[in-house]
Amino acid sequence: MKKLKVATLVGILAVSFSLGFSTNSAEAATSSWQKVPGAGSSCQVRVWTDASTYTTRATTIDFTLEQKGNCGNLKYIAGFNPDGLSSFTAPNTDGNFSFKTPVKKLSLNHSLFKGSQRSGWVEASLWKNNKTVGVVSSNKITVHKR
């Protein structure tokens, strides 16, 4: 009887995963590697976000920046850049990294998200030796109104 229960459970899990069901409610998104030739000929950076859609229950956009190639130490300012508002980036955070940043958090408790849904990107401006060397962006994300 115990073997039958275990076999049934394994079967249900196998069917669930083969049909695309997931136990996670949020799906992480990683951008493709983006060339940053101003930081070095082989330098590439990508942006990871913890989800592609942020519901009203979400409080932050969590992200990391990761580099490969010969980039060296890069400084960054990163923020949410809403679609259609190219001169407006909020909220933001800054720092530097030589391989990968720790998980950074952008607060969703901001007037930008009150009253309407916003689509956009986590966008990071990059510097090396006090010179701007490039801009990288996450995949497009959606933030539901607060």
Rank of each mutant, 00 (worst) to 15 (best):
G69Q: 10
P37M: 06
S32L: 08
S111T: 14
S138F: 09
A51G: 07
G134K: 02
T101Y: 04
F80R: 01
K145H: 14
L108Q: 00
N129R: 09
S16I: 03
A14V: 11
L126C: 07
F80Y: 08
D62A: 14
D50V: 03
P102M: 11
D62C: 00
S31Y: 08
K75I: 05
K140L: 09
G115C: 10
I141Y: 08
F21P: 00
S111Y: 13
A90D: 10
V103I: 15
S31Q: 02
Q44P: 06
D83T: 13
L74H: 07
S87Q: 11
Q117D: 15
L4F: 09
L19C: 15
V6M: 07
G38H: 05
G115V: 06
T53I: 12
A78M: 06
S98D: 06
E27W: 14
L13T: 12
A29G: 08
S18F: 12
N24C: 06
K75W: 11
A51Y: 02
R146W: 01
S16Q: 01
F17G: 09
G134T: 07
L126E: 07
K100D: 02
V15H: 07
T89F: 02
A90Y: 12
K131W: 11
D94K: 14
V45Q: 02
V45I: 09
E123F: 00
R118S: 04
